[in-house]
């Protein structure tokens, strides 16, 4: 009943439309929709893998502040990052000749993790702003993805700062607070000009900065108290009890 009886009511016009729609759509349209959907699914999967792999690397890098053999960890991290790079290569491959933004939402979660993932490695070795991330990637990261990645990085740096204090490392917090303050000021300069997600991150960023500033404050207040005549005494005893001799002294 759904299919019109050709011999009676359907004219040539109708059969044309029928052909055009039923077969055109089942082949061309369906193919187009399916290709798009499948690609989307693949990108979601790769992105998920990247996120997991990146988180593992970050985790590894957190140990940098606490283990003696920093080099070894950095090598391990590099191996892990290589696999991330490979996966990013796969995304680039999938997107070859495609409009980046059509599938943007599919891989953004993975990419932002990765943005900040690149950072700590560089940060540990030299405290300057790393730019190689862009080179590693074979396709362009949008400024928004980059900003979101940087914002996530600050959360990790805050954690790093707190554990530095716990470990008696006194320089890192002061360095980090300056760095985070620059990022914070940068974000507040951009303000609500950027996309919604960026403005939303500003709040978290402010909280992280607050925690780092509090840590610096604590260190300063504490350090202020040492009576001058005791100073030498204190640190010798400290070194003798539970500090490494090569630890930086306030």
């Amino acid at each position: 009943m759904h299919c019109c009886d050709e011999s009676r009511t359907c004219t040539a016009l109708w059969s044309l439309i029928h052909a055009l729609l039923c077969f055109h759509s089942s082949t061309v349209f369906q193919q187009e929709l399916d290709t798009k959907h499948d690609k989307h699914e693949r990108l979601v999967k790769i992105s998920r893998d990247i996120t997991i792999e990146s988180k593992r690397t970050i985790f590894l890098l957190h140990r940098v502040t606490s283990v003696p053999d920093v080099e070894e960890i950095l090598t391990e991290a590099d191996v892990k990052l290589d696999s991330v790079r490979q996966k990013i290569g796969q995304i680039a491959e999938e997107l070859k000749g495609e409009d980046l933004h059509q599938f943007h939402r599919a891989f953004t979660p993975g990419m932002t993790t990765n943005t900040y993932d690149g950072q700590p490695t560089c940060h540990v070795t030299n405290t300057h702003w790393p730019s190689e991330v862009a080179c590693v990637l074979t396709f362009q990261i949008t400024p928004t993805d980059y900003l979101l990645g940087v914002a996530d990085l600050t959360g990790e740096l805050m954690r790093m700062c707190i554990s530095s204090v716990g470990n008696g490392d006194i320089d890192t917090p002061f360095q980090l607070s300056g760095f985070l303050r620059q990022i914070h000021d940068g974000f507040s300069y951009i303000g609500n000009t950027g996309p919604y997600e960026v403005s939303k991150k500003l709040h978290t960023l402010r909280q992280s900065l607050g925690k780092v500033e509090d840590a610096c404050y604590t260190l300063r207040v504490r350090g202020s108290e040492i009576p001058k005549h005791m100073l030498a005494d204190v640190f010798t005893s400290r070194a003798a009890t539970h500090l490494d001799p090569d630890e930086p002294i306030v």
């Binding site: 303050r181 914070h184 000009t193």
Partner: peptide, 18 residues
Amino acid sequence: LEQTAREILTVLQSVHQP
């Protein structure tokens, strides 16, 4: 106005730096 306000903020926020 918002842009100018953000610029003023950037100037003043630097008082938090040591």
